[in-house]
């Protein structure tokens, strides 16, 4: 009786063990040698990163394939080819921030307000690092759901700059996209209103600016009309490239 129990227990356990071994061997193919990884955690992180990169590359391949298909379909039809190219140009222009964007979003108005409590150690500091303050705010917005942002109508794109430029008279000018802007500064952002408001609240932006006697007013604009962020109007990279017209 006892021997029977032993045999059947071993049989059951051996079956489970065989199943586990097979699953493990068929699931985890040996990874190629990728240098000296200090621990399992490094390897795990690398695998996760590779998996994410793989997904991104698959998306890029799918996008490129659809583009190639569009070109193939337009082959021999000049009008269709032109339409496909125009669609591409429109997509690229939208991604580059050259077209205006309208939708739900927020506006952040920052202006000097002498009625705010005066703090000797922080009052007036905003004028000295306005570029950094605005840079932090727009970075937070971009990282938290903003699709398009402009400061006083200047659209922020990948080549944009926010600079504080000192003049000869000792005054400083804030420049966005090398265009001087003046207070009140109005940041307009289209995107996820809740997430953008949340990060501003989390970072206590209103209170921090108030310490510098700057009033910060955040206004949400819900609905389809929402706010409009104008397209980038400044110079584009690649000035040396010239359009060629043949015939």
């Amino acid at each position: 009786m006892k021997r029977n129990r032993l045999i059947w227990s071993l049989t059951g356990v051996a079956a489970v063990l065989g199943f586990l071994l097979t699953v493990q061997l068929t699931s985890a193919a040996p990874a190629p040698d990728s240098g000296s990884l200090s621990s399992y955690i490094d390897l795990k992180t690398e695998v996760e990163e590779q998996a994410q990169e793989h997904v991104q590359l698959l998306q890029q391949i799918a996008k490129a394939e659809s583009q190639v298909q569009a070109y193939k379909n337009a082959k021999g039809h000049q009008a269709a080819m032109m339409e496909a190219l125009q669609q591409d140009a429109a997509t690229v222009a939208k991604e580059a921030g050259l077209t205006s964007v309208t939708g739900p979003g927020i506006t952040i108005a920052i202006s000097f307000d002498p009625s705010l409590p005066y703090n000797a150690s922080t009052a007036g500091l905003f004028d000295q690092d306005a570029d950094q303050e605005l840079g932090l705010i727009v970075n937070d917005l971009f990282a938290n759901g903003a699709q398009a942002i402009s400061i006083n109508g200047q659209r922020l794109v990948t080549t944009s700059s926010i600079r504080l430029v000192a003049g000869l008279g000792g005054t400083s000018d804030l420049q966005v996209n090398t265009v001087p802007i003046e207070s009140p500064y109005v940041i307009t952002a289209v995107g996820d209103i809740q997430r953008m408001q949340a990060i501003l609240t989390l970072n206590d932006v209103v209170t921090e600016l108030a310490l510098m006697q700057e009033r910060c007013t955040i206004t949400p604009h819900t609905g389809a009309e929402g706010v409009t962020v104008a397209g980038y109007q400044g110079p584009l990279p690649g000035n040396f490239a010239k359009e060629v017209h043949n015939g």
Binding site: I7, W8, L10, T11, G12, V13, A14, A15, V16, L17, G18, F19, L20, L21, T22, V23, Q24, T26, S27, A28, Y40, K44, V47, E48, A51
Partner: peptide, 30 residues
């Protein structure tokens, strides 16, 4: 021979079922 048979059955079921666990969980299974 029953435990050996059980092991073979388990391996066969593993192959037939074709279960794939994510790479990130394979260390737990090991």
């Amino acid at each position: 021979w029953l435990p050996v048979l059980g092991l073979l059955v388990g391996v066969a079921v593993g192959y037939v079922a074709n279960v794939h666990i994510p790479v990130m969980y394979s260390s737990y299974l090991s």
